[in-house]
Amino acid sequence: MIELKSPAEIQRMRVTGAFVAGVLAELRAKAAVGVNLLDLEQHTRSLIRDRGAQSCYWDYAPSFGRGPFRNTVCLSVNDAVLHGLPHDYALRDGDVLSMDLAVSIDGWVADAAVTVVVGTPDEADLRLVRATEEALSAGIDAARPGNRLGDISAAIGAVAEAYGYRVNTEFGGHGLGRTMHEDPHVPNRGKPGRGLALRPGMTLALEPWFASGSPRIVTDPDGWTIRSADGSRTAHSEHTVAITGDGPVVLTLPEGA
Rank of each mutant, 00 (worst) to 15 (best):
A155M: 08
M99Y: 07
L75Q: 07
P145N: 09
G139T: 07
R216T: 02
E255F: 08
D111N: 15
N36C: 11
S98M: 01
R70T: 14
A158C: 01
G17R: 10
G150N: 13
D183P: 14
V218I: 14
L40P: 07
A29G: 07
H83C: 11
E161Q: 12
E134C: 01
L136D: 06
E3Q: 14
A229H: 04
A102S: 15
R178M: 04
D183C: 05
A21L: 09
I152H: 08
R51G: 00
I152A: 01
A25H: 08
L91N: 10
H185L: 09
G213S: 01
G84F: 09
P248R: 11
D111M: 03
G34W: 11
T203H: 08
R216Q: 14
V159C: 07
V103E: 07
E182I: 00
L253S: 08
T132I: 06
T44M: 06
G173N: 06
L206T: 00
S63I: 14
R178A: 06
T120R: 14
I140T: 07
P215N: 08
T72N: 10
R127V: 08
H87W: 01
E26Q: 13
E3P: 03
K30Y: 06
E207M: 12
H181P: 00
G52M: 10
N71F: 13
T169V: 15
A135F: 06
S232T: 12
V250K: 05
A113F: 08
D88H: 14
Y57T: 01
V20M: 00
T132Y: 02
L206H: 05
R148Y: 13
G65D: 02
I10S: 04
L4Y: 14
L196H: 01
L128I: 09
A142E: 08
D95L: 05
T169R: 15
Q54V: 11
L196V: 03
S212M: 13
G173A: 08
S232Y: 00
V23C: 05
A229L: 11
L4E: 03
A21T: 11
D230Q: 07
F64N: 05
A242D: 05
I217P: 00
A61C: 13
S104T: 12
G52V: 07
P254Y: 03
D106V: 04
A242E: 09
H185F: 15
M202A: 04
G231R: 10
G193T: 02
S6Q: 10
V35K: 03
A29I: 06
A160M: 06
V241E: 05
T203S: 12
A80S: 13
G107Y: 07
L24V: 09
A90S: 13
L126G: 11
G245Q: 09
H43Q: 10
A143F: 10
T120D: 02
L27F: 10
A205E: 06
V73T: 03
G67S: 02
D50C: 00
G245M: 04
H87M: 07
H239S: 14
D93V: 11
A162L: 11
V33Y: 04
N71Y: 13
P208M: 07
S6G: 04
D222C: 12
I226M: 14
L204A: 03
G52W: 12
